[in-house]
Each structure stands twice: as structure tokens, then as C-alpha cells.
């Protein structure tokens, strides 16, 4: 059960989503991927994609306009 941070600050769509897809495929079940983003468009597609995969998702707004998307690879 490890946590992996994926730094996507400064990156626009669809880069964060592509990176997140790649990163999650390398993780084990039970691991958590933390995607750091600051482009609001990524706030639309990254959580939506993760939920469509059936993963648990929770988001923290760490700063104004900066988010950490926690994706638990639960299956």
C-alpha cells in the first residue's frame, strides 16, 4: 500500500490524464496515486476518468487553483 505522487503542475489537458493513466497501470491494487494539477480542465477529465474505471477518488484543494487528486486503485 504505497502512495505515488504525480506532479502535473503547469501541464494542460490532456497531459495530466495521459500521465495518470500510465502511472496507475504501474501500481498495485490498494496503492494510491496522487495527481497534482493546476489546470481546471484536468479537474474535469482526471476525476471523471478515474471514477469511470471504478476507483475511489477524493480531491484536496491545496492552494487556490491547485489540487491533489487522490486515486485509490481499489481493483
Amino acid at each position: 500500500m504505497k502512495e505515488v505522487i504525480l506532479d502535473c503542475f503547469g501541464e494542460a489537458c490532456p497531459v495530466p490524464l495521459v500521465k495518470a493513466e500510465k502511472a496507475i497501470s504501474t501500481l498495485e491494487i490498494g496503492d494510491v496515486l496522487i495527481v497534482q494539477i493546476d489546470h481546471s480542465c484536468a479537474m474535469k477529465n482526471v476525476p471523471e476518468w478515474a471514477r469511470a474505471q471504478g476507483y475511489n477518488v477524493e480531491i484536496e484543494e491545496v492552494n487556490d487553483g491547485e489540487w491533489e487528486v487522490f486515486i485509490e486503485k481499489n481493483k
Partner: peptide, 17 residues
């Protein structure tokens, strides 16, 4: 093809690309 594989619901997001 949903999301980033070619089907989009957001022109604002994907117009520039």
C-alpha cells in the same frame, strides 16, 4: 474513445489541441 481518446464534451478544454 471517451475522454482523451477522441470523444470530448468540452470545447473549451480541447479546442486548442
Amino acid at each position: 474513445y471517451l475522454f482523451d481518446k477522441g470523444i470530448s464534451f468540452c470545447a473549451t478544454c480541447d479546442a486548442a489541441a
